[in-house]
Amino acid sequence: MSRIATFTIIGLLLAAPVLTAQAQSKHSNTPAKPKKLFCWNEGKERICSDALPQDAVNSAREEFSVNSGLRKGGVDRTLTEQERADAAVAAAQHQLDQAAEDTRQRTEQAMLSTYQDEADLRRVFVERTGILDNNVQTANYNVASLRSALVTLLGSAGDRELAGEPVAPKQAEDIRLRHAELVAQKRMQDSYVEQRKALDVEIEETLQRYRLLKGVSTDPRG
């Protein structure tokens, strides 16, 4: 196997047709098998050879015809396990993005063909709006009730302490339980409020998109 650096590649390519012609004249009865010249990088050095060593098999390389000196193609380097995993994730994400775009386009077409006007479209959100409004109201009532009950229990426990009496174990346990219930209910209340705000945003964005698809101006001046 011969290995040469970049500065000799031009001479080799220029001499290749002559050498090939000489070889064919000596073996005119045996068709010459097309040979390739491989070029790849090893660090900062450019290496070219008519045979590919094992340690360069996974490297990116270019391939030239020894007969004509023309570039015949190239091979990208072999990806690492991490790069293959990253590529698979990217491909899967691209597929998901394309599916989401296809769904969006179908949804928009259905929107145009199904709903005659904004009022018709708003009715789609009536049920969700009603459910969330009811959840918020129920959570508000529960939070108020639990807070009132906790204040009463704390007041009673405070009165006992002021009177020099210890807080009964059951009373202390009731305070702990009421406080835990209040914290949990408050979290639920906050969640319902955030969901209701998010729904308002979704409704407005949907209406804006509908107006755009319909070609209706969103400018209040018309």
Rank of each mutant, 00 (worst) to 15 (best):
M1F: 15
I4V: 10
T6D: 14
F7A: 10
L12C: 13
L12T: 12
A15E: 13
A15I: 06
T20N: 11
A21L: 14
S25G: 05
H27I: 06
K33N: 13
P34A: 15
L37K: 03
W40K: 03
E42W: 10
G43M: 04
R46T: 10
R46G: 08
I47E: 03
S49W: 04
D55A: 15
A56Q: 06
A56L: 07
S59T: 08
E63M: 14
S68L: 04
G73I: 01
D76Y: 08
L79N: 02
T80F: 11
E81N: 14
R84D: 15
A85W: 10
V89D: 06
V89C: 03
A92H: 07
Q93K: 12
Q93C: 07
L96W: 11
A99D: 09
A100F: 07
D102E: 13
R104E: 12
R106Q: 12
T107H: 07
E108M: 07
M111A: 08
S113N: 11
E118N: 02
L121S: 01
R122N: 00
V126F: 05
G130Q: 02
G130M: 01
L132G: 01
Q137C: 04
T138K: 08
T138D: 09
T138H: 10
N140T: 04
A144K: 03
L146Q: 03
R147L: 13
L150I: 03
V151G: 11
G155D: 15
G155W: 04
S156A: 15
G158S: 13
G158A: 12
R160F: 14
A163R: 15
G164Y: 02
A168Q: 14
A168P: 06
P169A: 14
K170E: 15
Q171W: 13
A172Y: 04
R176E: 15
R176T: 15
K186P: 00
D190F: 04
V193N: 00
Q195K: 06
K197H: 00
I203C: 01
E204C: 01
R209N: 07
Y210N: 02
L213T: 06
K214N: 02
V216R: 04
S217D: 13
G222F: 07
